[in-house]
């Protein structure tokens, strides 16, 4: 982690992509844009030319035009329909080919994960079989250069998983599992965003895909597999008790009695760079303010103001800071 991570110039831009599951869409985007501009230009030129030549020929008797058809007058209609037909069929074939390319299975995925859209955060479960599975939130790590299969689920309403630089939009729908594929050509941080209006805090439902060099990914994965740290200082030990009483009903820290499933898994909270689905950088100040009163920062979020007494807030923070 010596050098600064690569981030696309415009994190939500879709004109520049960085993986085989998005590149064909970019070509399609440019192609369709060019085609649309060409259609507008051609039609405009023809209309203007028609008006001008008619004016030059001195046609003034408009009433007579509708019924008189000079021989060969249908030529432009045939040409126009034929051109349009060819363009539309070509676009259809291109679109279907692109859809097939971005959705087709890439053989064996290097990693399979399950992303569940919640109001208003993303649950991310890595399924590596018994003893190799873990859950995190809002930040997806993947090995760069390898295909990743993403199973998409919805917990409450319809959301949409969208990482413009890596993959197009796929809805997360309660009661069914959709599939998306991800692959990043190079290590970097790629921003994503819920792309289907899902309620009050839809705009604060971002996620990050961090493509790591394979060795870094493996190190991260090993770290995430571990249970929550055992607190050692008096403050952190007291803080863990506060956590069990005040937070454990909604949040899980693996390996402890805190097993709630309403909010994000906090087992390795401190390994994340943002909190509340990309809403705030994960700093001491933001974390403290969020815990005391998330409603001021993300009104409507499914975490209520906790009214934790300030003395306990410091202990709670001491405990959370051990969750690396």
């Amino acid at each position: 982690m010596a050098s600064a991570p690569f981030t696309p110039a415009s994190p939500m831009g879709f004109w520049q992509t960085f993986g085989p599951r998005a590149d064909p869409v970019t070509a399609l985007n440019w192609g369709f844009s060019a085609l649309s501009v060409a259609v507008v230009v051609i039609v405009t030129v023809l209309v203007v030319a028609g008006v001008v030549t008619r004016a030059q020929r001195g046609v003034t008797d408009m009433a007579g035009l509708a019924v008189s058809r000079p021989p060969g007058g249908m030529r432009w209609i045939y040409i126009g329909v034929a051109l349009t037909f060819v363009a539309l069929v070509a676009s259809l074939i291109w679109t279907v080919a692109v859809l097939a390319a971005v959705n087709s299975p890439a053989g064996r995925p290097a990693v399979t994960l399950e992303v569940t859209g919640h109001q208003w955060w993303w649950e991310v479960a890595y399924d590596g079989g018994p003893g190799e599975s873990f859950t995190t939130a809002n930040e997806i790590h993947i090995p760069a250069g390898a295909p990743v299969e993403v199973k998409l689920k919805g917990a409450d309403v319809i959301h949409s998983f969208w990482i413009p630089a890596l993959t197009g939009k796929t809805d997360t729908i309660p009661g069914r599992t959709n599939l998306a594929w991800l692959q990043a050509d190079r290590p970097g941080v790629y921003r994503g965003q819920c792309a289907e209006y899902c309620g009050e805090q839809h705009a604060h439902m971002a996620l990050y895909v961090k493509a790591d060099a394979p060795a870094d990914f493996e190190a991260w994965r090993q770290g995430q597999l571990k249970p929550g740290a055992v607190p050692a200082t008096p403050d952190a030990i007291a803080g863990q008790q506060v956590f069990f009483e005040r937070c454990g009903a909604c949040h899980t820290v693996r390996g402890t009695e805190a097993g709630g499933a309403v909010g994000p898994d906090l087992t390795h909270l401190m390994s994340r760079t943002t909190i509340a689905a990309g809403t705030l950088p994960n700093t001491v100040a933001n974390l403290s303010g969020w815990i005391e009163n998330p409603q001021a920062l993300k009104p409507g979020a499914k975490m209520p103001a906790t009214y934790v007494p300030p003395a306990q807030l410091a202990q709670l923070r001491a405990y959370l800071e051990t969750l690396r």
Binding site: P281, T283, A285, Q295
Partner: peptide, 21 residues
């Protein structure tokens, strides 16, 4: 802004500072 004082304080002129702690 970077530190996140606004997670607890409203600060005039800083739109992101809307904390009520």
């Amino acid at each position: 802004s970077q530190v996140g004082c606004g997670a607890c304080h409203e600060i005039p002129g800083l739109r992101s500072a809307r904390g009520l702690v």
